[in-house]
Each structure stands twice: as structure tokens, then as C-alpha cells.
Computed example of a mutant assay.
Amino acid sequence: MTNIRIVVVEDEAATARSLIQILNEADDQVAVVKALSSVSGAVAWFNDNPDGYDLIFMDIRLADGLSFAIFKQVAISRPVIFVTAFNDYAITAFKNNGIDYILKPFDPDEIGTALDKYKTWTGNAEKPGAPVLSELLMQLGNLGKSYKKSFLVHYRDKLIPVESAKIAWFYTANELVHLHTLDDKQYVVDATMEQLEQQLDPALFLRVSRQFIINRQAVVEAEFYFNGRLLVKVKPQPAEQIVISKARTAEFKKWMNS
């Protein structure tokens, strides 16, 4: 059988590894030929390898911007399965070769179903996405809007509930995620940053960098930084600076001004 040559575009290293493992285990026809982590890197690779792949699994929010920017800089003729923690990009996704739209955190069954959809698509001459657009938009529109109200954390020999509204920020390092409360307490939380993005109320929390998700109640001020970036001051202040990239400053301003 002919292998399905897959490119993974994902800026979270742990998520990329997990996705690649699931793909390799889901189907013996799958061959992951490349893992990319940025818009710029993807543009360069797809320009150099226009025929080097059959299918793309692509995150939407990358470290240097939205992945939709890739389609503006290079011709992508193969189908794309978007894998994201956000449900508000569905229409744009299907305008950019999308044949499926999987919300994180995903499971192996969803990935297997998406691969089956790709196999069906390869025998269909219709435009990518057309057969499933209305169905998926309906599913996305019916998603519940409830968010986590608290997190159960371990502290010594106890389990302690921490209210989401009382969390100042989440920080990730060495594949561990820490939460820091408004009253200056810190715990390890059993979740990835991408899972947290889906679980937290976006009106209250925003992921401002790969390392930080912050609570608007913790923000003291933001000052202009080098190269169009922003330096955000929060309280309590973490040991590491919170720097928002130029690509994310507009989103941060809109969030704070809403």
C-alpha cells in the first residue's frame, strides 16, 4: 500500500510528539515525513517540498502567528486537518483546504476518524471541506460554553480545590504546568497548556505566550518593549518576564479592552 505522507505543523513540542505517536499507531499506511513548529518554517519547507506530502495536520495558533498566514505565502494543494484548542476559526479553516477540524484535547479515535475522512476525500473530486462544512459548523455551534470553575491540586498529602477566578497565571517549564494564585501560592496542575486554553473562560484568561496564560485580574500594566512586543506586569510577579510577541499584541489589547 502507498503511504500517506503527513506533515505535522504544531508549536507545542509535547503535543506534536503525542500527535505523531497517535498517527503512527492509528494506521500502518501513515508516514510522518516532517514536523514544523512555525509559520515561517512551514512556508520555507512547503516551498521547497511542494510534492513531498499528501496530508497536513495543522495547529492554528503558532508561536509566530496564525497558520492561515502560511496559505497566503505558499500554494498548499493538499488537504489539511486542523487541530486546535479554539472553535472560532472554523469557516476560515474550511476556506484553506480544511477537510476536518479537531478540537483539543483530542483522542486517538478522533485522529483515526480524521484519517478515514481523508481516505474518503481522496476518492472525491469535490472541493476540500465542502461535504462536511455544514455538519461541522453545526457541531461547533452546539459546543457547550461551560468552563472549569476550580482545579483540584496536590499539596503534600492533601487535595486542595483552587477556584479558577483566584488563579493569577499558569506557567509551563520542563513540561510541567504550575498555577500561581492571586494570593501568591503556587501548585502543579495536571494539565497541558493547550488543555487549559480550552478549559478556561477566554473572557478571564488569555494565553499570551508559550509559557504563560494570565488572568486579566492579575494584570497591572503593559509597556512597549523591543520590536513591537509588549512587556506585561502582573501581580504577583513571576520570576520570568511575560513578553507578548508582536503577532499577539493586537489580540492582547482587544482582550484587555473588551
Rank of each mutant, 00 (worst) to 15 (best):
D190E: 10
S245W: 15
E221K: 15
I167F: 06
E163H: 10
N257V: 03
D157Q: 06
W169D: 05
I81T: 01
E197L: 03
L159W: 09
L143Q: 11
A173I: 14
W121M: 10
D183V: 05
W255T: 02
E126F: 03
N3T: 03
Q29I: 00
D190C: 05
E135W: 03
T84R: 08
T2D: 12
I213R: 06
F170H: 11
S245V: 12
P108E: 08
R216S: 14
K117T: 09
I244P: 04
F205L: 01
L19R: 05
Q195G: 15
A16H: 00
T120Q: 13
D27T: 01
F252D: 00
I167G: 01
G123H: 13
A250T: 13
P236S: 05
L36R: 08
D116A: 13
I20R: 08
G144W: 03
V8A: 03
Y89A: 01
A130C: 07
D201K: 01
Y187R: 09
L36I: 09
D48S: 13
V220N: 14
Q195H: 12
K254V: 03
E175P: 03
H154T: 05
G41K: 02
I214T: 07
M1H: 07
A222Y: 14
I213V: 01
V234Q: 04
K34Q: 10
K158D: 04
D201A: 07
Y171I: 00
P108M: 07
V153H: 04
N227R: 07
A16M: 00
K104R: 12
L231P: 10
D11A: 04
M1F: 07
A35D: 09
I242Y: 12
Q29P: 04
V219E: 13
A93I: 02
L231F: 15
S245L: 13
E197T: 04
W121V: 03
F106T: 13
Q199Y: 12
V30L: 09
L206W: 06
K253L: 12
W121T: 00
V83K: 01
T84V: 08
Q237M: 06
V33L: 11
A44W: 03
F71I: 14
H154E: 05
I4Q: 04
L196N: 11
M256D: 04
F94K: 15
D116F: 06
N87S: 15
N47L: 10
A14P: 05
R216L: 13
N3K: 06
Y147F: 15
L137F: 00
G228F: 11
K149L: 09
L179F: 03
G141K: 06
S67C: 11
L176Y: 11
L66E: 04
F94R: 15
H154K: 13
K253I: 11
M58R: 01
T2Q: 12
A191R: 08
I99T: 01
L152G: 01
V234H: 03
N49M: 08
D157S: 07
K127A: 14
Y155D: 02
S67I: 11
L231N: 15
F205R: 05
I91F: 13
S209T: 01
S209H: 05
E110Q: 06
E240D: 14
L182M: 14
V177F: 11
A173K: 13
A203L: 05
L55T: 02
S258Y: 12
E221F: 13
G65N: 06
K235D: 11
W169F: 13
T15H: 00
V43G: 06
